[in-house]
Design a protein around this nucleic acid. Structure first.
Length: 419
RNA sequence: GUGACCAUAGCUCAAUUGGCAGAGCACCUGGUUGUGGCCCAGGAGGCUGCGGGUUCGAGUCCCGCUGGUCACCCCA
């Protein structure tokens, strides 16, 4: 028997209301902040992601769904959104638009990872970007969109983790000091950290091995090495956050897996429901990315949030979602002639804007009533020999268990007054 | 990619030292001639994830594969 490919899943009708509610919330929220939708394609040239995400990252090294198409192009299913959005910014000359260009995207992304709770190979993200403005107020705005998303949904127990990773002027200086510090403790750290020191030194900061913790605690912090510009940017952002009374946790160990981040980086951590995955949202500033991809020097900041993870936390916290409207009328019938009338009646009711179910087959009236009951409709319309002869329709109010005859021409109006 | 645990009906789970594969829910049909929910009766639904092995006999024991969950890793 076929089954969904490892790491992929079906969104079934019982879960669909969560998705719809979440997507509606995102669209409303982005509109409130003046972000417009931009949907890049699901796949791009592989080299775009290699350059954009970074050659040494896990994503590029071992997680991309890459393939060669029939024209010999090297393509990759997007593992994240930012690279594609930046490509679109450059390709469509958006640097000539009013800056910053504020856009968002919703859709699937693909990474070849070991699936577990809250982690899938096809997963969905909302991605929000503000491109072309370096003002820390933009950092604040991006973080506020993320904040408001969770606030609007009613999520509890979230924490905003915040750090600055500096810029090309100060980040390398810090890395040199960090490496120098760690080289004095080579015998005390775990093998993974010794490897990280070679490949991606910042990653030692989020090592979880017990014996590495004291080393990390005593390690130099990025913030001690921020250049004047980065320090001022960060201080201004913190001031804005304080003005709005937004709680955040300064986390000097927060480093992110994608190479393009500069200055502000942040994550939102969920309290429960995600197993060992705690990040429901991650983002930051990427002031060098567009230039790296062949565009003009352009600052930018954005974040991505995982929709599956948001829904998992919503369920874990029992967050209520709006009920989707269900059909309120079912048309039942007895006999071929009545069924023909029922087919027409159902069509007329839908045309009149009344969500209507038609009983299929020619099952007993009992079975059709049972179907109406399970569907939860308020009225069942019955068409049989008697109704045909009288030129009327029987309308049964399911909750009151009362019924009456109504003329077909009046039935739509009769129902509309009561629904 | 590494390690641990797990896999029985659509769902949640039973099945004695290895001895005929079951229940609840859900689904279908009935319980007089055209009426739902509650109740009663019946029915359908399984090559016990897949493939090998041990055995007179395997859902049960062994091996491999696939998938799920968890941890590592990483991230949304």
């Amino acid at each position: 028997m076929y089954q969904a490919v490892r790491g992929t899943q079906d969104i079934l009708p019982d879960d669909a209301p969560y998705w719809r509610h979440l997507e509606n919330t995102i669209h409303d929220l982005c509109a409130r902040y003046g972000y417009r939708r931009l949907e890049p394609p699901l796949f791009e040239e592989t080299s775009l992601f290699v350059r954009g995400v970074g050659e040494g990252t896990d994503i590029v090294e071992k997680e991309m769904y890459s393939f060669t198409d029939r024209g010999g192009r090297e393509l990759t299913l997007r593992p994240e959104f930012t690279a594609g959005v930046m490509r679109a910014y450059i390709e469509h000359g958006m640097h000539t638009w009013p800056q910053p260009v504020k856009v968002y995207s919703i859709g699937p992304a693909f990474r070849y990872e070991a699936p577990q709770a809250g982690r899938y190979r096809q997963f969905h993200q909302v991605n929000v970007e503000a491109i072309g403005e370096q003002d820390p107020a933009v950092d604040l705005e991006i973080m506020s969109v993320a904040w408001d998303l969770y606030e609007t949904l009613g999520s509890q127990g979230l924490s905003f983790q915040l750090n600055s990773t500096g810029c090309p002027a100060c980040k390398p200086v810090y890395i040199r000091h960090l490496v120098a510090y760690y080289e004095q403790h080579l015998d005390d750290i775990c093998p993974d950290c010794r490897r990280r020191l070679q490949r991606n030194p910042l990653r030692v900061l989020d090592c979880k091995v017990e014996s590495c913790q004291p080393i990390i605690e005593a390690a130099p912090h990025m913030r001690q090495y921020l250049c004047a510009e980065c320090a001022e940017h960060f201080a201004t952002l913190l001031g804005y956050l304080d003005l709005l009374g937004r709680p955040y946790t300064l986390n000097h160990r927060l480093v992110r897996g994608l190479d393009y981040y500069t200055k502000t980086v942040f994550e939102v951590w969920a309290g429960e429901g995600l197993g060992s995955q705690n990040a429901v949202c991650g983002g930051g500033r990427y002031d060098g990315l567009i230039e790296e991809l062949g565009g003009p020097p352009t600052p930018g900041i954005g974040f991505a949030a995982g929709l599956e993870r948001i829904i998992l936390t919503m369920k874990a916290q029992g967050i209520a979602i709006p009920q989707l409207p269900a059909p309120q009328v079912l048309v039942a019938h007895r006999g071929a002639a009545a069924k023909a009338r029922a087919v027409v009646l159902a069509s007329e009711l839908r045309a009149a804007g009344i969500a209507t179910l038609l009983a299929f087959g020619q099952r007993s009236l009992k079975a059709q009533m049972r179907e109406a009951d399970r569907a939860g409709v308020r009225f069942t319309l019955i068409l049989g020999g008697d109704e045909l002869a009288a030129g009327e329709v029987t309308v049964r109010d399911m909750s009151a268990a009362e019924q009456q005859r109504v003329a077909p021409a009046e039935i739509a109006g009769w129902l509309k007054r009561r629904l």
